[in-house]
Design a protein around this nucleic acid. Structure first.
Lengths: 121, 121
DNA sequence: TTGATAGTTCGTAATAACAGAACTTGCGAA
DNA sequence: TTCGCAAGTTCTGTTATTACGAACTATCAA
């Protein structure tokens, strides 16, 4: 099994981050991980897409987030403990990531609301 | 030829924007278009990638930017006049896009500088 | 040693991106 | 008018990505 590798923050790119976030599962994982108070294991997100997603797929999403430089992962036993690299990211990219996640959360809140409205009719 | 269609701003998504920007050519087109003072035609960006890129490819990139909701295009004769939808986007997504483009520009500035440094050795 | 759990890797089938060629459209000159 | 050119578009085949299932590794605990 390959050792976990994390890019140096100076090698992290804007395009890379945007690509990683362009997938609905990945941006959601990141948003939840950012909101969590402590590290989370991969399998905590099995049901994140509504449907239960295969663990091979989940594993690859985490690998992309990690190799993009968005999260840091550490093996503890059989588990992988994940956390965002938010401090470093903020230093390097300013408020970019916060504003992306903020817009994402607001978008979801709006979608939820309009779904409710529809239901009420 | 299909008529040009622009999504309503309420149907524009964060993920869609991030996907569009995850391509180096597209984010660059958007950044330059945002910096331009007036509308620009597609072929103004033929050389944007260093190498001259095929116009079929360029056409498709513009279509993606348009269908994502990032730019507005208007046919004038044989030309397509393009501009960003920055005002609407700002209203809908707050500072998100500005902070992305800001980070992108800063990243390029940094890359240029370190390339110069290398050369000087 | 065996079983169970967490995650990874590999093979493949579906999907999307890219670029060349042929096509449409609108102009401006002859 | 008609010809030719310039700007984009669409079509098509090739190439690269993605997602999933199945088989695998690694660790822990009974």
């Amino acid at each position: 099994m390959k050792p976990l590798s994390h890019p140096k923050m100076e090698d992290v790119t804007v395009e890379g981050i945007l690509y990683a976030f362009s997938n609905p599962v990945r941006i959601r994982i990141y948003a939840e991980l950012a909101a969590a108070e402590c590290t989370q294991i991969c399998s905590a997100y099995r049901d994140i897409a509504g449907t239960q997603l295969p663990k091979s797929t989940l594993s690859q999403h985490f690998a992309i987030l990690r190799e993009t430089g968005l999260i840091r992962s550490e093996r503890k036993g059989t588990e992988l403990h994940n956390a965002t690299r938010c401090d470093e990211l903020k230093e390097r990219f300013g408020g970019m990531i916060e504003s992306i996640i903020g817009a994402y959360i607001e978008q979801n809140a709006r979608a939820k609301k309009s779904a409710k409205k529809k239901k009420r009719k």
